[in-house]
Simulated scan of single mutants.
Amino acid sequence: MKVDGRVERGEQTRRQILRRAAEIASVEGLEGLSIGRLATELEVSKSGVFAHFGSKEELQLSTVRAAAAIFVRQVVDPALAEPPGPGRLDLLLDGWLAYSEGRTFPGGCFFHAVQAEFDARPGRVRDQVAELGARWHGLISDTAAAVPGVTDPDQLAFELIAFLELANTRSVLHDDPRAYERARAAVRSRLAPLSAAGS
């Protein structure tokens, strides 16, 4: 079946818009997005950008979904290829640190940035950001539950995510060159007793 060239071009333009929108939002927040700015930067018409989204809120929601898809491809999918257990947990944590440290988005972790922006604002964007954050915590908790020696996977997930997010903050806000190294050391130290207990 032949794909309509206009449809394919439209989808390609949409992907380009959302990729740039996620890059901007990681630095300036979702409120920093505007249809006019994206049209200018990507050299497309305002009406063309508007036709894809229809409103600023829809642009924000679509940007969050696009950033989530990138995160899943880069961090989650490779880890889920590993059987449940310590190896999968290691891959999730290492993947997150590589995603933030490697500046998949120029502002570090996209979700760390927009959570701070929307944590106290009611609405659809906040709900979506909160849901994705809860899913990430749930994935770490469920993965930790399959690790021998873990008695409170929710607590462990809380601590591990705190290490990751602090590394992101120290790197982005304080330009700390050792932030990710420190986070990896903290993760190893926290998980070492579990490795000993499981051996």
Results as ranks from 00 to 15, higher is better:
1 M>L: 11
2 K>R: 15
2 K>Q: 13
3 V>L: 14
6 R>M: 12
7 V>D: 12
11 E>Y: 08
12 Q>I: 08
14 R>C: 01
14 R>E: 02
15 R>G: 10
16 Q>T: 09
16 Q>H: 12
17 I>S: 01
17 I>C: 03
17 I>Y: 04
18 L>K: 00
21 A>I: 00
21 A>Y: 00
27 V>N: 01
28 E>A: 12
29 G>S: 00
30 L>V: 02
32 G>D: 06
33 L>C: 02
35 I>E: 12
37 R>V: 13
37 R>Y: 11
37 R>L: 14
40 T>D: 15
41 E>T: 04
42 L>P: 07
45 S>P: 05
45 S>E: 07
46 K>P: 00
47 S>W: 04
47 S>L: 06
51 A>M: 12
52 H>Q: 09
53 F>D: 06
61 L>A: 09
61 L>R: 11
62 S>G: 07
62 S>Y: 02
63 T>F: 03
67 A>R: 01
69 A>C: 09
72 V>A: 14
79 A>T: 09
79 A>S: 09
81 A>V: 13
84 P>V: 07
85 G>K: 01
89 L>K: 02
90 D>K: 10
92 L>N: 11
97 L>G: 03
97 L>Q: 05
99 Y>H: 15
99 Y>K: 02
102 G>Y: 03
102 G>I: 01
107 G>H: 03
109 C>A: 14
110 F>I: 10
112 H>D: 15
113 A>C: 11
114 V>G: 02
114 V>P: 03
114 V>Y: 05
117 E>P: 04
117 E>C: 03
118 F>T: 15
118 F>G: 05
123 G>W: 02
125 V>K: 01
125 V>I: 08
128 Q>K: 07
130 A>L: 11
131 E>I: 04
132 L>K: 06
133 G>V: 08
134 A>L: 14
134 A>M: 14
134 A>E: 15
137 H>P: 07
138 G>H: 05
138 G>K: 05
139 L>K: 01
141 S>D: 02
143 T>W: 05
143 T>G: 05
144 A>Q: 07
144 A>S: 12
145 A>Y: 07
148 P>R: 04
150 V>H: 07
150 V>Y: 08
150 V>W: 08
151 T>Y: 08
151 T>W: 09
152 D>A: 14
154 D>T: 08
158 F>M: 13
160 L>P: 00
162 A>N: 10
162 A>R: 08
162 A>S: 15
163 F>W: 10
166 L>V: 13
167 A>H: 03
170 R>D: 14
172 V>Q: 14
174 H>T: 11
178 R>M: 10
180 Y>P: 03
181 E>Y: 04
181 E>W: 02
182 R>M: 09
182 R>Q: 12
184 R>G: 03
186 A>K: 02
186 A>S: 13
188 R>K: 06
192 A>K: 12
193 P>T: 06
196 A>N: 05
197 A>R: 07
197 A>H: 06
197 A>C: 01
199 S>Y: 06
